[in-house]
Write a protein that binds this DNA or RNA. Sequence first.
RNA 1: GGGGUGUUAGCUCAGUUUGGUUAGAGUGCCUGCCUGUCACGCAGGAGGUCGCGAGUUCGAGCCUCGUACACCCCGCCA
Length: 588
Amino acid sequence: MFEKRNYCGELNASDEGKQVILSGWVQRKRDLGGIIFVEFRDISGIVQIVCDTKESAEMAELMDNIKSEYCLFISGTVRKRADDAVNTNMQTGEIEIFAEKIQILNSSVLPPIPVESDNTVNEDLRLKYRFIDLRRQDMKDAIIARHKVMQTTRKYLSENRFLEIETPILNKSTPEGARDFLVPSRMNKNMFYALPQSPQLFKQILMVSGFDRYFQIAKCFRDEDLRNDRQPEFTQIDIEMSFLTIDMLIDIMEGLVKEIIKKITGTEIVLPFNRISYDEAMNRFGKDAPDMRFGMELTDCTDIFQQSEFKVFSTALENGGIIKAVVFEDGNKISRKITDELAEFVKIYKAKGLPFVKFRDGKLDAGITKFITEEQQKQLIARLDLKDNEIVFFGSDSENIVNDALGSLRLKLAQDFGLIRNDFNFVWVLDFPLFEYDPEEKRYYSMHHPFTMPRTEDLTLLDNINPENAGQIKAQAYDIVLNGVEIGGGSIRISDTKLQNKIFTLLGISEEEAKEKFSFLLEALKYGAPPHGGIAFGLDRIMMILLNKNSIRDVIPFPKTTRGQCLMSEAPSPVSSQQLDELSIKIK
RNA sequence: GGGGUGUUAGCUCAGUUUGGUUAGAGUGCCUGCCUGUCACGCAGGAGGUCGCGAGUUCGAGCCUCGUACACCCCGCCA
């Protein structure tokens, strides 16, 4: 009976008179007495069913029983609707199906959350009853769009000589980086596998093995605290190539992104994307993932306030800090209440306050104006190119705090006052520092990962590294940023054992330690390892932005809560003492 | 680990101003009527552990303390 199935959303006026067979669910029933309309839904869409209950007592009784979300089998005839009965809001609004036979395949209890709704329902209910939530149109659209992106990715990469290769999920724990999820080994007592944070080492090994273009749509796992754009398990489009330059990689990846955008939005984006250095991103936007859809860039004013009577400024400068400014276009919208709120806001980022001045009638006014000399005022007006009614917010502290606070303030103001264009803005961020210095532990950390190739011209600096100049050593690493969200990142890798060992030494990883953790990679690099590099895209984040969602949970079929629980399956859960015994595990 | 917001009918919310009779609305649900609806309409009805636990009080949805859960943010996420 299901063999010759038709799909609700695919029927149209050209099917008039056709006998059709539909299988799906009751979205809504409108009982007008002698005639009943049913909005009938399957994966493809919705079509209206008409039942004449005056003609047949049998049909009348059957229809009386049918309620929302019943699963039905319907055979009937496609009819064109009368002109005044056409529903232009409906894909299939020109037609309806005159039901000849209806069979109830399964009844449904009343769903706890409505299928016909936007996502205003509490998220914990949506997650608990995900099987109902996924029936809703916007979740269905998201899952279908995700499928299309994966298919487009596979097609594009395959056509560009990439091979899809799987790598292990059960792997070795490496304490560098994010916290691992551990899996106890039954056959090897007191030993653990770790779930992969990424297939990093394996894809590099594949390069050594000569599979010179690899990709994988890979699940990755990180046991860290969660956010709206972070899940404990997430999906990467993982890519690695041999014999490449950064320009080659960018070229191929822009092609992939273009295909994805075309598939999902139907629009052609302009290539190439903008490129910006890490340093410039930090200076102009205060973030390494700048949202460049609007202005309000940060301006350094440290030099103007070298001699300042304003204690906040002078103290910051004495401590080696900087002073930067952000200008907002409409000071009239910024009341005393709002400046207080914004001052509270920047404290999240460890700023101590938020001094400001307004610009009216050609001169500074209000806020900290009285602490600024005439000469400084003149310079400031010129530097910031101030226009009437603008308001200037200052950050003065260490460079990190100022960038963090003002970069976040810039975003908040733009969001609160609707200054952000609805657009897809891609930018490559290049020339990341190779290391970060941790003053507390007095050691260097890799900004990307320990296998990242330094810029060739910076190699000599490695021998004289100190906390001051460490930031000048740049990596051949890159991020791709979409609307201020990092959607991908990668690097050219080190393919030389000597250099790799040198980097380990600088990172304070001893020879024994390196051997213990990465010996197979170091060993592999000895056997004619090709120059190689790659990138990984966060599929969930890409989908989130393309579909304009607030959270990656809305593009993942079965996500977890911010405490890492699945409200539907109730994972994680305790296990039996027998299971623990087999693993020789004792619970504290 | 820290900060914030929220939790009242199946769902979405109001009610907390000033603690005070029987806690409301919309929607959904149930029953009846209705042959062109499409957010169908009309009439009637059911539906509440005010997250949970203490406390203050003659009296708590409302005040205090604790706690659970969800979400957002800082830290964390090579």
